[in-house]
Amino acid sequence: MSVKSDRFGRAAACFVAILALWMLLFWRFHWSVILTGVFFAAIITATIGSRFPAGIAKVLNPLRWFYAAIYLPYFLYYCIRANLDVAVRVIHPDVPIRPGIVKVRTNLTGELAKAFLANSITLTPGTLTIDIDGQDLYVHWINIHTDDQEKRCAEIVGRFEPLLRRIFE
């Protein structure tokens, strides 16, 4: 029973999300727009509804939104720093890079949380997530400056982990 209701919840959330997106993109309330939206939302829900992230009821928790609101400027700061970092490396006449692939561990377990962690790592200074294997992330690092595993984890993952855990788990 619970599996069935979970599947129904996912499909319903997927349908509502896609319909809302459609209405926002059209920005017009006309019966033909809504009818087409319902039609396409139904098709998409039928094909990928079962892959929609579970536990969507978490969206209704205002505390998570509060942490998300903190996360956004925090992430933007690192994103802009990353861009300046890459810009300096690109313009510098010697192209100063020490690239390699390192492994870092994360404590996050949720699929969505890990996906956001990987995306955040990719958009922050000098790192690009290449692969995820369970709790291990393989990261291409443009400037390896330490051999210490813990320092690496702290620098790459530590920035985002606490906030992402509060948002998604």
Partner: peptide, 16 residues
């Protein structure tokens, strides 16, 4: 154009 291989190029192109 300037960075050497596909990984570094992906870094520059995704971030910037």
């Amino acid at each position: 154009v300037r960075l050497p291989d596909v990984y570094n190029r992906a870094q520059a192109s995704t971030k910037c």
